[in-house]
Design a protein around this nucleic acid. Structure first.
Lengths: 226, 226
DNA sequence: CACGTCAACATTGTCGACAAACTATGCTGG
DNA sequence: CCAGCATAGTTTGTCGACAATGTTGACGTG
């Protein structure tokens, strides 16, 4: 009965997942014109389920489609990428506030354990990219679900995060950022643990604001070519 | 080349629009189990395009689908409806702020004209429901597009507004609310005209907050049965 | 030599039929 | 009389073929 446990996995779902991960991982680069037949042979699918999956992806904004002219992977401009972070700022701020009000003590404990794991991970990898790619995502993922706001979690997990991850793979992590980000995560967690929703919202907004500025800087430096 | 001018209208698009309006208008009530064959005969479509449209609607959260078991119109609980307004609050606050920074003078003039039209409309209809259903939507619509934030506008116009409108049709408008809402709209407009993004955001958030409280009151009164 | 036009091609959109899965009804047994 | 199971029926998921449209290349003309 839970939406996280789909008993039967349909072909269209399979196609959807395959394409989504392929786009996020960069196997299908932004701007690529992808033919339906190519995709069918690549993922061993038929065109029916594939087209259904394409429709879903298009609706989520990961693909753009022009009738009779094929489908392309969405290509965000630099400004559009920045705008994405502005949306994240307000939405995740809300998520943090509601999470502070609604997360169970158990969930908070788990989140703390997760951050501990991230810390050792960063130390071992000497601040390598892994944290930015997965650990950060994990933290924000838990906050979103912890908000107990179904639609909010759906929009964050289903739409925004995929788009962000899609470009994050190409962002070379700056040297000290993982450590600093972890510190910010810890402070957000403590605000949540103290059930201080207002503070949690403030800290989360500032956290994402910092990430946005980091990206803007890289764009100006020309490190990030879009 | 503009996305607002689709040269060719495909059958799937047609199906998508039909279903969306049918859901929003209430022809397909929340919780209804709808069979694919019924829909095909009702809208004179074939199952291929229909399924594609269903996939899109599902991805947007207007439908829920269980494999091999059919598709139902989403049925929001009272709390979920309220949560929707919390999301609107932060997202439209952002939209108002960015609109204040980016709308052209012409767009602002048009918006002002729109509000004038709404005023005469309300006076003529003695504060009838029409304003709540269409006029309010129009105002928020213009703010969203005026933000020049593609993804933000897409999420508001493509996702949230449809869900809100779907339940708004069942909300009997309270007597004095249209007039008060119009006043709030005017103040938001003036903040935008003065390019005061911060104020515009604050006023918009308060405006939607008021709408949320209005709904919460009605739910408590038992007027709104969900 | 450049531009516009036309035609063949490839790709997408659409359709109808087959196979798999869930639901419901009726039956049997306790 | 109620519970559980089996079977029939309906609905959904999937597939392959046909039709419509955009694209690309070549050709002729100004």
């Amino acid at each position: 009965m839970l939406d996280t446990a789909p008993q039967t996995y349909t072909r269209a779902d399979e196609a959807f997942d395959c394409l989504q991960t392929a786009i996020v991982k960069g196997d299908l680069a932004p701007g690529d014109k992808i033919g339906e037949l190519d995709l069918c042979s690549r993922f061993d699918l038929t065109r029916g389920p594939l087209r259904e999956a394409l429709g879903r992806l298009e609706s989520r904004g990961l693909l753009v489609r022009r009738p009779h002219a094929g489908v392309r992977v969405v290509s965000l401009s630099a400004s559009e990428l920045v705008e994405l972070y502005r949306i994240r700022e307000v939405m995740e701020g809300l998520a943090a506030r509601q999470a502070a009000e609604r997360m169970t003590d158990q969930e908070i404990a788990d989140l703390r354990a997760t951050l501990d794991a991230h810390e050792t991970m960063i130390d071992e990898a000497h601040g390598q990219a892994y944290y930015q790619a997965e650990g950060d995502y994990d933290f924000h993922h838990r906050i979103a679900t912890g908000s107990r706001n179904t639609k909010l979690a759906q929009m964050l997990l289903g739409d925004l995060y995929y788009m962000v991850r899609m470009y994050r793979y190409r962002l070379s992590t700056s040297a000290g950022r993982p450590h600093r980000a972890l510190g910010e995560h810890r402070r957000i967690l403590e605000a949540i643990a103290q059930r201080d929703g207002e503070l949690a919202e403030f800290l989360m907004k500032r956290h994402i604001n910092a990430a946005r500025k980091n990206i803007e800087k890289k764009i100006q430096e020309g490190v990030l070519t879009i």
